Amino acid sequence: MFAKDTLTNLHWTPDQFDDADYFRVMEILAARPAKDRPVDPMQFVKQIQNGQ
Rank of each mutant, 00 (worst) to 15 (best):
Asp18Ala: 05
Asn9Ala: 14
Asn50Glu: 15
Thr8Gly: 04
Asp21Ala: 08
Pro38Asp: 11
Asp21Pro: 04
Asn9Gly: 13
Asp19Tyr: 00
Val39Asn: 02
Phe17Arg: 04
Gln52Ile: 08
Glu27Leu: 07
Ala30Cys: 14
Gly51Leu: 12
Leu10Glu: 03
Arg37Pro: 07
Phe2Asp: 15
Lys35Phe: 05
Phe17His: 09
Asp5Thr: 11
Gly51Asp: 15
Tyr22Cys: 05
Val25Ala: 15
Phe23His: 09
Leu7Thr: 05
Thr8Tyr: 07
Asp40Ser: 07
Gln49Val: 07
Asp5Arg: 11
Lys4Thr: 11
Asp5Lys: 09
Gln47Tyr: 02
Asp40Lys: 06
Arg24Glu: 14
Asp21Ile: 05
Arg37Asn: 15
Asp21Tyr: 08
Arg37Trp: 02
Val45Cys: 13
Asp15Pro: 00
Met42Ile: 13
Leu10Ser: 07
His11Cys: 13
Leu29Gly: 11
Gln49Ser: 08
Pro14Val: 03
Arg24Asn: 14
Gln47Phe: 02
Val25Pro: 12
Asp36Asn: 14
Ala20Ile: 02
Thr6Met: 12
Arg37Leu: 13
Met26Trp: 01
Asp36Tyr: 05
Gln16His: 01
Val25Leu: 15
Gln52Pro: 01
Val45Asp: 14
Ile28Tyr: 03
Ile28Gly: 06
Asn50Asp: 13
Arg24Ser: 13
Tyr22Phe: 12
Gln16Asp: 10
Met42Pro: 01
